[in-house]
């Protein structure tokens, strides 16, 4: 039953598969982005309160969602790598970090640009904003810790612990708006209850969220392949396939 799992985890196999998967993620992602941006900027009506400024939601919310999803993925991959001593899982965790950090930067910057005209401030030490900033520091700390080791295996293990410990910040970011008084409003889209956005305004948001997930997946394929090459540089399969190409 677990055979596929071990097969997938074998570096040459994973290297080949990731190369095959990538176009199937990248092109749909780009197509969905075009549809989503057209829907968000042109088709969706302006909000009754925020007018056209509300359109920033279509880049802000997917970036913020991805910043959390990528962290969870990084922590789970790091835990798998630590527990099963799986090199591929560590490669995935290491590849997630810079991408997650960029999504966090986007969420913070677009949020700030949105906050100025609507709330009246670029930045406030509100629980949501502060915990999202801590998320950025966790990503940066993870990358700095990795860079401080010469040996990849030691870097993998040390940084995995930081990634796993930092996962407690994820529910804090997500629920900060419910646990504490905050300037930031509650969630507008929810899996369990009716969404607080009108249907004509919510569909581009969902399309863009999916587009961001696929786009992230496409970039992750490339990054993990690069990490595999780095880790497998002394193996026979790599020498063989490199000479062939």
């Amino acid at each position: 039953m677990w055979l596929w799992f071990y097969q997938l985890a074998s570096p040459p196999h994973a290297y080949r598969l990731l190369g095959l998967w990538r176009p199937w993620l990248l092109w749909p992602a780009i197509a969905l982005m075009v549809i989503g941006v057209y829907g968000g900027l042109v088709m969706a009506p302006a909000d009754y309160q925020q007018k056209d400024a509300f359109r920033i939601i279509y880049v802000h919310v997917p970036s913020a969602s991805l910043s959390l999803m990528v962290y969870v993925m990084m922590a789970v991959a790091a835990a798998i790598g630590l527990i099963w001593r799986m090199k591929l899982a560590h490669a995935v965790a290491a590849s997630c970090a810079p991408l997650g950090a960029w999504f966090t930067v986007l969420a913070l910057v677009t949020g700030s640009i949105w906050g100025k005209p609507m709330w009246g401030t670029w930045w406030e030490w509100d629980p949501r904003l502060t915990s999202e900033l801590i998320l950025l520091f966790l990503y940066l700390g993870y990358m700095a810790l990795r860079a401080s080791f010469d040996d990849i295996q030691r870097a993998d293990r040390a940084s995995a612990i930081l990634a796993i410990v930092g996962v407690v910040n994820v529910p804090i970011v997500k629920y900060s708006v419910e646990w504490w008084n905050s300037l930031h409003q509650g969630p507008s889209i929810s899996v369990t209850s009716k969404s607080a956005i009108a249907g004509s305004m919510v569909w581009p948001l969902l399309v863009l969220l999916l587009a961001f997930v696929l786009y992230f997946g496409a970039i992750l394929c490339n990054r993990v392949r690069g990490e595999i090459l780095l880790r497998e540089r002394n193996t026979a399969w790599l020498a063989e396939s490199s000479l062939k190409s």
């Binding site: 909000d47 009754y48 709330w119 956005i197 009108a198």
Partner: peptide, 18 residues
């Protein structure tokens, strides 16, 4: 010294709001 506006999580077109 400073007044900030807080908005809720509801978004809708103006006619629906009316």
């Amino acid at each position: 010294e400073e007044v900030l506006a807080k908005h809720d999580e509801n978004y809708m077109p103006p006619d629906v709001a009316d």
